[in-house]
Structure formats: structure tokens, C-alpha cells
Design a protein around this nucleic acid. Structure first.
Lengths: 199, 199
DNA sequence: GAGTTATTTTATCGATCGTTACAGAAATGG
DNA sequence: CCATTTCTGTAACGATCGATAAAATAACTC
């Protein structure tokens, strides 16, 4: 936990949060390999040494941008109430977020670093773990619904969780391809028809 | 249609089809930007001038590899028989293909060139058009099923087609993330529960 | 004001990117 | 055998990659 007692030396001329936000949008839109340091310079208005001084490296900046995305723009599965409504809300929320005006289309995590050079595969592990964690949290929510009797006991919670994840990932692809908010919401609604009949 | 009347000059020392296949696998696994010409050299065993002589450029080679993938490894929606069985077969076939041993995981088209540098966005248009075409062919197949009375008239064919596409795209992501064939097949099976009740 | 510390700017680093000149090698036609 | 044509390998091209050394600048402390 680094703690700057008093601010000595020349002060920063930029707002670190705003710069991180701009970098996040660049990575979000063009991916890791598609975003060069030159791109980041024009996106943030900073020069390379300032970026490196504040964030360490391009990879570290990407990871920070990922975390920021997850906390600021990530859809969350509401833990309370009926699971069916929580999942439906989750999917519709994602449809809205992926087609939000003023932001890049799609999800920064769902479809991040899928085809990446062998040299920098380390960059892909964090988004992959985030996807795995999302699948796991959905599955646990569904298992709870089974235990609560909301879902029939023969429900394949893991497979159903993968379906929900696939819908998210597919909506991300289709949003990037230009799908409208209405089309994504319709997709989400149709997907909910796969929800098992009540126990 | 270029036609070499008689073979003069030094003959090719390689099988063009085998080289294209090797290049396809490289692009399939690492994407366009993640596959360098050096990577292609070691994947094919050729030197750059031979590659350029045979295929023109890295981008042209990628496009050729894409077409080859589509014709050799692309799942197809069987046009005859009940639409429900055709779609179920389509999804299960994709699940198998995306987890086929000896080949890269996932789909070369479903998740290709999603985050790509602004400079080379032309590369992304062909895969995007292929995805759009897949969605369209599914939708038309579903519309036909509605007309035939297999699906209720109020069916949202476009949304259902997008769901099928999303499942494909999501399975591709999850295959890359390490999902097993059984997991993908279970996902496909659960997804089919979204199929509307008979008319 | 002098000295210290941190940031900014300028310029550049070596590595790699996609691509290609050029010369040697291997087949043809005369 | 000679000339021609085409391919292969070597070497290198300019551009860009991520990253940084060094100098100039702007705040602080004393």
C-alpha cells in the first residue's frame, strides 16, 4: 500500500481516473493488440513516459482498465429474489449495456483476447478467469434456486449457466457487428424461454 | 481465372493446399493480428517470398484461409426435414467441431477480428459479413418453418435466429476457454429448450 | 532564493512488423 | 548448350512496435 506522505516534486498535470477511463475505452474498442501505445497517447492526451510513469506498462494499463471496466460497466447477477427474474434482468441489462450510446459496443470481457499472439498469452488469462468466474457465479446462483425448489432437481445447473454465459458472449459479438438494442433485448427474451418449467 | 498453359520455370516445391491449411490453422488459433508473417513461415515451412508469391499478402492469405475454413470446417444448417432437428443438429455439430482434437478450439469465424486495430479494420469486414450471412440463413430457415406450420405464427424468427447465433458464438468463446465437448453439447441441448412449443 | 523531487517533453532505443530487391537455383523451350 | 522463366533463399527495406534515457519544467522544502 504505497502512501505518499506529502506531495513533493512536480505534480501530475492530469486526472489519473480520467486517463484510465480513456485508456479503458480504447482497449474496449480495439482490444489489447489492436491498441498501440500511440493510440493510447492520442486517446489520453498523454505522452508515453507519463503513461508508463503512472501505470507501469501497456500490459499493466490494460489490466487496470479491465478491472475498471468490471467495476464500472459489468452487469451483475442480483443475488436476491427469484433466480428467473435475476437472470432475465441480467441478460436485459447486458443487452442495454452492450448497445449503450457513447460507449464502445459489446463487452470488454466476454470477447477479449480470444485470438492473441502466442507471445502475449499472459494478457488473455485475466479476461479468461473473469469469464470463468462469471460462469461459476451464475451456476452457484442456479444451484441455490434448485435447492430452494425454484428449479426442478434434475436441472443441469452447469449447462444452464453456460447457456446464460453464451447468450452474453453472443450478444457481445452481435453488438459489435451492429445489432441494435431492440434486437439484443429480443434475443435475451427468447433465450429466457429455455428456462426450465417450475418444479 | 488465371490459366497456366504450360509449366515453365522452376516448379513449386510445396503443396499449395497443404500450405493454406497450415496457414488457416495458425490464423484460426492466434487470429489475424496475433499471427505474424514469421509465425506463418514456421507454420508452413515456407519463406516469406514464397508465401507472397503464392498468396499475394498476409491479408489475402487470411481471406483465403477464411474461405477454406468456411468450406472445410463450417457447420451447415441442413435445409430439409424439421427445422427443430436441423437446428439441434447444427448446434451439436458445432459443439463437436469446436472441441475437435487436433484442431484449434472454437470457431474461426464466430469470434474473429472482434477487437482489431483501426488501421486494419478491412480485415474484419469479411468475417462480420459471414456472421451476418449465417444469421440470415438461420432466420430464413425459421421463417420457412413458420410458414410450414412447424412454428407458431407469432414466432420472432429474427430473435430466435440471433439466439442460435449467440449460442454458436458463446460456444466458440467457451471452447477457447477450455470447455469440454460434453459441456458444449450440454449447453446446446439446454439451449434447444428455448424452442417454441409446436403451433 | 537554493536545493530537492517528481513530471513532462523530446528524441531515440532495439525489436519486430509486413513487404520486397536481388541473386542463386531449377525447371522449361529452342 | 543456351536462353528464358519461375521459384527459393538471403538480406534488407521503411514503418511501427513497446519502452526509456536525458533534458527541460514545475512544484515542493528549507
Amino acid at each position: 500500500m504505497e502512501m505518499r506522505k506529502t506531495s513533493r516534486g512536480r505534480p501530475r498535470s492530469f486526472d489519473e481516473d480520467a486517463v484510465l477511463d480513456a485508456a479503458m475505452r480504447a482497449f474496449w474498442e480495439h482490444g489489447y493488440e489492436g491498441t498501440s501505445v500511440t493510440t493510447l497517447e492520442s486517446a489520453t492526451g498523454l505522452k508515453a513516459p507519463s503513461l508508463y510513469g503512472a501505470f507501469g506498462s501497456k500490459e499493466a494499463l490494460y489490466q487496470s482498465a479491465l478491472e475498471r471496466y468490471a467495476s464500472e460497466h459489468g452487469a451483475v447477477l442480483r443475488p436476491d429474489g427469484p433466480a428467473r427474474e435475476a437472470v432475465a434482468e441480467f441478460l436485459l441489462d447486458a443487452a442495454d449495456r452492450f448497445s449503450e450510446g457513447g460507449l464502445p459496443p459489446g463487452c470488454m470481457i466476454s470477447t477479449a483476447a480470444l485470438g492473441v499472439g502466442a507471445a502475449q498469452r499472459a494478457v488473455a488469462t485475466r479476461p479468461a478467469k473473469m469469464r470463468a468466474q462469471t460462469l461459476d457465479s451464475i451456476e452457484q446462483r442456479l444451484r441455490r434456486a434448485v435447492d430452494d425448489g425454484e428449479l426442478p432437481p434434475e436441472t443441469d445447473a452447469a449447462a444452464l449457466a453456460r447457456l446464460v454465459g453464451a447468450v452474453i458472449q453472443g450478444m457481445s459479438v452481435q453488438a459489435i457487428d451492429g445489432a441494435t438494442r431492440a434486437e439484443l433485448r429480443a434475443l435475451a427474451t427468447v433465450a429466457m424461454n429455455a428456462w426450465p418449467a417450475a418444479a
